[in-house]
């Protein structure tokens, strides 16, 4: 109920009082940007893209005929769909666990600094995250360059093998994992904030009970920040399934002298989707690819939420 005094004298016959109706109108006014945006830019496009996925729409001719499930059938036969799914899976399986464990390690490192210096190191760790994706891709084209890039110079100095990060199909994805790990700062900041919220008394109690550092990590730290760990696990998974900008900068577009190996080894799922939609102008097919991605993301997230019920500790439950 609105606190408007008119509410008291409201017409009891009408289902909604004048005050309630006024409140509703105001609410609609305030909500209108989102309602309009939701209809025009989210719900409408979802339905439209579902429709497009059953057509062979080409934006140049503006023509698209209904072709039933042909696009979906074609995906099964398209070798590049399998390849791009494999590349994306390979990347995610390496990147997600590494980003969460390394992120946790760095957050604990920050937590050990204590005092006012922790902030400065946190800033240093986070700086790569404000770097535009195109600049990250450009920077790593130079860093991963063979044989003279920064990384291979360092590896050579340590007498380690110097793979061809941009041309060797076996190493391209590993190089991309390294690049994405460079911008791990967001994960670190979230986990660091969670670590700082763990009550110190818990550690005192654990210590009184004679728990060593490893036991304290396993029995105090990890359970207490399991919510934050789960959160970064989900967002890093969803993000890695949609990896695009950095990789597209490095290996695709109108690159002259682009690495031929990159065309297949760095063909991630969303990159392939984008190429279909905006380079090959197969928008019907690309829409079908989009819906497969949607299903994959929903399934994986659902699975992660199911798992989280067993591993995530929520205060007050």
């Amino acid at each position: 109920m609105s606190s408007d005094t008119a509410a008291g004298r409201a017409d009891k016959v009408s289902r909604w009082s004048a005050a309630e109706r006024r409140t509703l109108l105001w609410a609609l006014l305030f909500l209108s940007p989102w309602i309009v945006g939701f209809v025009i830019f989210t719900a409408g496009p979802m339905l439209w893209s579902l429709w497009l996925s059953f057509t062979d729409y080409n934006p140049l001719s503006g023509q698209g005929d209904f072709i039933g499930l042909d696009n979906y059938a074609r995906m099964l036969e398209d070798r590049r769909v399998g390849l791009s799914l494999w590349n994306t899976l390979y990347f995610s399986v390496l990147y997600v666990p590494l980003s969460v464990t390394l992120g946790l390690g760095l957050a604990m490192l920050l937590n050990g600094v204590g005092g006012r210096f922790a902030g400065s190191f946190r800033t240093a760790f986070y700086l790569p995250n404000v770097t535009p994706a195109v600049a990250v891709g450009t920077l790593f084209l130079l860093i991963l360059n063979n044989p003279n890039g920064l990384l291979n110079q360092a590896l050579a100095a340590l007498r380690l093998p110097t793979p061809s990060w941009l041309n060797d199909p076996d190493w391209i994805k590993n190089g991309i994992v390294l690049m994405m790990l460079w911008s791990i700062g967001g994960t670190v900041v979230i986990l660091f904030a969670a670590l700082r919220n763990v009550p110190a008394e818990l550690y005192e109690a654990a210590r009184v009970d004679g728990a060593g550092p490893i036991q304290r990590l396993l029995n105090v730290t990890l359970p207490m920040i399991s919510g934050a760990i789960f959160f970064v696990l989900v967002i890093n998974t969803v993000a890695s399934l949609q990896l695009f900008s950095e990789v597209y900068t490095m290996f695709f577009g109108q690159r002259t002298g682009a690495s031929a190996a990159g065309e297949s080894s760095a063909l991630f799922y969303v990159v392939y989707l984008f190429r279909n939609a905006f380079e090959f102008l197969r928008m019907g097919y690309a829409s079908a690819l989009g819906w497969l991605l949607f299903v994959i993301v929903v399934l994986i997230t659902f699975f992660q939420f199911r798992l989280s019920k067993r591993f995530v500790y929520y205060e007050g439950e």
């Binding site: 830019f41 409408g44 934006p59 939609a277 928008m283 993301v297």
Partner: peptide, 14 residues
């Protein structure tokens, strides 16, 4: 949670 890739094409057409 909606991946941007799903709505990208219709938004372009709009």
């Amino acid at each position: 949670m909606l991946p941007g890739a799903v709505t990208m094409i219709p938004q372009y057409l709009i």
